[in-house]
Computed example of a mutant assay.
Amino acid sequence: MYLSIPQLTAALSIRDLTDPEQGPHALQDLLDDVITSLTRAWSIPAELQRTTGLVATTDNYDRLGYAPDDVTRDARYSRHASPTVMLRSHTSAGIPAVLDSLADIEQPYDRLHVLPGLVYRRDAVDRTHVGTPHQVDLWRLNARGLLGEADLRSMAAAVVEAVLPGARWRTVPANHSYTSHGLQIDVETPAGWLELAECGLVRAGILRTSGLDPRRWSGLALGMGLDRALMLRKGVDDIRLLRSPDPRIAAQMLDLQPWRPVSLMPAVRRDLSILCNPDADEETLGDAAREALGPEAEILESLVIRARTPVEQLPAAAVVRLDAQPGQVNLLIRLTLQALDRTLTDTEANALRDRVYLALHEGHVLELAAG
Rank of each mutant, 00 (worst) to 15 (best):
A81C: 15
L138W: 09
L232F: 14
E283K: 15
R308Y: 09
D62I: 03
R170E: 02
R170I: 03
Y357S: 08
Q28L: 05
Y178Q: 04
A150H: 09
H181T: 11
D346K: 04
R355T: 11
I35N: 08
S180T: 15
A221L: 06
A157C: 00
A46E: 04
S302L: 01
R63G: 01
E198S: 13
A317W: 02
G294Q: 06
R76W: 09
S302E: 02
V71H: 12
D70Y: 02
R240T: 01
P310C: 06
A204T: 14
A359D: 10
E21W: 00
R270Y: 09
L112C: 10
E161Q: 13
L303I: 09
L87A: 10
L64R: 05
R73C: 02
L152A: 02
A316S: 13
N142R: 15
G219D: 03
N60V: 10
A349W: 06
E367V: 03
V304R: 14
A162S: 12
A317N: 07
N142F: 04
Y2E: 13
R73G: 03
P116H: 07
L272E: 01
L27I: 07
L8R: 12
P133Y: 11
A292S: 14
V329R: 01
E296R: 13
A288E: 15
M1L: 04
G182Y: 05
R50S: 10
E296F: 04
A250T: 10
E161T: 10
V202H: 03
H134E: 09
P173A: 10
Y120Q: 13
I305D: 03
G211Q: 05
R355G: 07
G286T: 09
D238I: 04
R79Y: 01
Y120I: 10
D62T: 14
L337V: 00
V356W: 09
H25E: 12
W193I: 05
T72Y: 04
D69N: 12
A339I: 07
R208V: 09
Y77R: 08
L207C: 10
L256W: 08
I5W: 13
A351S: 14
A280I: 03
T171W: 09
L256S: 08
L332W: 01
V136P: 00
V85F: 05
D227P: 05
R79N: 11
C276Q: 01
L38Q: 08
